[in-house]
Simulated assay, not measured.
Amino acid sequence: MVPTGERSYLLLKVDRVEDDLWMSQPEAARQLGIALIRIGALIANGHLTPVENPVGRAGVSIASVQAERIWRENAPLRAKVARLLTDAISWF
């Protein structure tokens, strides 16, 4: 059985990448210090890039996780609030 967060993407067409470019969703959540459910929201809002590893497990690109981490560390509060509002509005 494949752990939750590592199953393949059923409704998204995503690239399949090598293991050294891929990170599991649970590991991405640990790296970013957020809950696993937030990874899905970040993917849905285009802040993380969904990819599959060579065996078809769902994950995100390491590059997008690194970019998100850098953004979170350096973005001013104003940018974070603006992003939160933009993401919330996009759900409606």
Rank of each mutant, 00 (worst) to 15 (best):
A29D: 02
Q31V: 15
Q66I: 04
V17I: 08
N53E: 08
I89P: 01
V51Q: 07
I89C: 04
E68I: 02
R38K: 15
Y9A: 07
W91L: 14
L10F: 15
S24C: 09
A29G: 06
H47T: 05
F92P: 03
P54C: 05
A35L: 10
V51C: 07
G40D: 06
A75E: 02
G33K: 09
A88H: 05
V65G: 08
P54N: 03
A63K: 12
F92H: 08
Q66E: 13
W22I: 05
V65I: 06
E27H: 14
I37Q: 07
V51P: 05
A75W: 03
S24P: 11
V55F: 00
A44N: 14
R16S: 15
L12K: 08
L10Q: 14
V2G: 10
I62F: 00
I62D: 00
E73S: 06
P26R: 04
P3R: 00
I62K: 14
V55W: 00
V2Q: 13
S90K: 09
F92E: 10
L85T: 07
Q25N: 01
A75F: 07
G33N: 07
A44C: 08
R57Q: 11
G40V: 08
W22V: 04
A75N: 04
K13F: 10
L10M: 12
R78I: 11
V81H: 04
E18R: 00
N45C: 11
V65F: 05
A82D: 00
L11S: 12
A67C: 00
R57I: 00
T49H: 02
S61V: 12
A35N: 13
E6H: 12
W91T: 10
R7M: 01
I37T: 08
P26L: 14
I34T: 08
S61Y: 14
Q66L: 06
E27C: 10
S24D: 11
A82G: 00
R57N: 04
E18P: 00
L12C: 02
R38M: 15
G59D: 01
T4E: 12
A67S: 04
N45T: 15
T4C: 10
L21G: 09
I39V: 15
E27R: 15
R72N: 13
A58V: 06
I43D: 03
K80Q: 11
D15A: 02
P50Y: 07
L11A: 08
R16W: 06
L36Y: 09
A28S: 03
E68V: 09
